[in-house]
Nucleic acid binder design. Structure first.
Lengths: 208, 208, 208, 208
DNA sequence: AATGAATGAGATTTCATTCAT
DNA sequence: AATGAATGAAATCTCATTCAT
């Protein structure tokens, strides 16, 4: 038992190392140009061992995607007592962007998009992870704000789409076409203009 | 002279056939998996001839991209006398979507995005074509509407970003992750909700 | 007749232009890497015309080789009345080296050597041109010197081999392995040491 | 450990087989016309394996060159007590020629010369191997002969150049232009005439 | 007689995956 | 269980030569 547990631990460590190495290589070279041999080398295992853990390149890539998508922001915890609507919306927007720009989610998204024709299931899973579920979380925050009368009652699902559409348009979309894109210096200003619009649409008078 | 003209005609036809075939193959298989030999076969030329016309795979792909991006909507011509703000905005939105969904612009964009790390110039060119220039055209329409008092004076650049952000969020973004995505049955309804929001923000009272 | 002569003249000019262009390209790129299309372009003719004049790459190359080998030194004319044996031998050596280093004979020889397995006839022809015939000329000079009692009677054929062997060893051989080789500053000194040896072997006493 | 040693042995054998096959093919077809696929076939490995061992055609060729140049004559061991100057010089000349004509050094030299413009470093390395270093060895022998009073004191470096120049002129040069060249029947006679000249120049009286 | 477009055959190199040890 | 060597299949691109006009 002890030895078996030890083995499993070793195995898990190797698996983690593989995923780490694979992430690095995939992000650097893209899917097609990433070489299994390179990944194995960086993970300090043989290619054969690599294939013991992940039976194909595609499966390994899926594991990397899921590993990255796993980490996400807990929006609820961002909100403090006494925050104005603008305060909360700003924190939410910042959280949204940090999820997208930290952990190389943008770069990974590029790769997933590239593999859409070859791996449709993976793509739709990532869309689910990066859009649907995130939207649910965002919507929960907005709903809470409505409940607390920080926003007018409104179709919060549509509201979330409008909001995240604006953020994507301003920050994510250009990043999709430019590997070296980083958030611009006037990010805060742009965010606040989006919040202006949101509050103009759905704010209660005092918060505008 | 006659012979020269003839040759040029033949050559142009071949070139067009190559681009057609290349588009088909690229769209079906993506950039990396597309084989020059397959493209040549489908275009009924030898690979050598193909390379006479386009000196590398990358150049051929760029030609395909430009060929697709070339065709674009003339928004000005959409507007008729007597159109309400809503009428115009609807036509504009529809034009925007048709540019995106006809001619496989979505699928091509996927491929371009995939090649961002390997062909940054191509990517930024396509971003320019598909975002910057289109936004300029849209902005011209909005500016005209403001001049005609169909909309309140406002920062039209930001307005266009909000609008196209919403359309992208609702229609383009999902299409990026799903090769078989088509515009949904309730497209019109969704468009009108976006217009509602736009008019709420920037409309003059009577048009809401 | 007049028009025919004109045509022939044009044709000859084209042929010369082709050989000029071919020499340039062959010298720059070597045989295999030289492209017939490039040669045609530089000669301002079509590839088809090029093939009218020379029915294969090999034949064209042979023409280039012969064209270069055609020009050679007239050793007899070098000798003046009253020259000492050393004077004459020096002029002969210099003539030998100029034949070898002007007109890119070294570079061409490299290419011919490279093509020995593929074009044995051409190679043996060039060997004939660059060795046998030249040796005959040199031998004629030496024979004349013997007749004029500037040298002892000796096996002049062997003498020429010894002499040209020494020159090749010192100057030609290194040039074969170094495309940028040029005659060194102490060329004269080296030549004179060879002459010293030659005179020690075959000179009459007074001339040493 | 055992397995590792075994693997290394197998690997070395494969490598040797590849070099053998490559030598054969290179010698037969020259550098450019030699196909990696053919080499792989003859070595009974896949092209991929071939590329694991030598990461490019050029590198493989360099390995072949070095393998051939590695084997060389130990001139010192040729000399026996009581040998006359002529005896020693004859043995040295024969050793020189055997180095050149066994192991296909001539044929390889042809190929190296052909690649001078494309691979200057390799060419200068081979020149070093085949000329400079060999000359040093020859010179050591001559110096020893001078020390033993078998030859007059003289500039032995120049002497070696004269001697090897004569040998090259008589035997190596024609072999450069004729793939099927072999040492002629009167080789011994020719060698002795060269020795005659050498002794005439640098011999002590009794040995002439 | 001259052209430029077209080609077929072949070149080197890469890579995901398997297998003997 | 783990390895490193081995592979088959494919990819892009080049070039001497020919053919329709």
């Amino acid at each position: 038992m002890g030895i078996e547990a030890h083995r499993r631990k070793i195995s898990n460590e190797k698996q983690a190392a593989i995923i780490r190495a694979a992430q690095e290589i995939f992000l650097t070279h893209g899917y097609t140009r990433a070489g299994m041999a390179d990944i194995a080398r960086d993970a300090d295992v043989s290619t054969a061992t690599l294939y013991k853990h992940f039976s194909s390149k595609e499966e390994l890539f899926a594991a990397v995607v899921k590993d990255v998508a796993r980490e996400t922001v807990d929006y609820e915890s961002l909100i403090s007592q006494g925050d104005t609507a603008r305060d909360i919306l700003y924190k939410v927007a910042r959280g949204y962007l940090s999820t997208q720009f930290d952990n190389h989610a943008n770069a990974l998204m590029r790769i997933v998009i590239a593999e859409v024709p070859g791996a449709p299931k993976l793509a739709s899973e990532m869309y689910d992870l990066l859009s649907t579920r995130r939207h649910e979380k965002l919507r929960a925050v907005i709903d809470e704000m409505v409940r607390n009368k920080l926003l007018k009652p409104h179709d919060t699902e549509f509201g979330v789409r409008i909001g995240s559409g604006a953020l994507k348009e301003l920050f994510v979309w250009p990043a999709l076409f430019d590997a070296s894109y980083t958030l611009p210096p006037d990010t805060d200003e742009k965010i606040h203009r989006c919040i202006d619009a949101y509050l103009a649409l759905f704010g209660v008078e005092e918060n505008s």
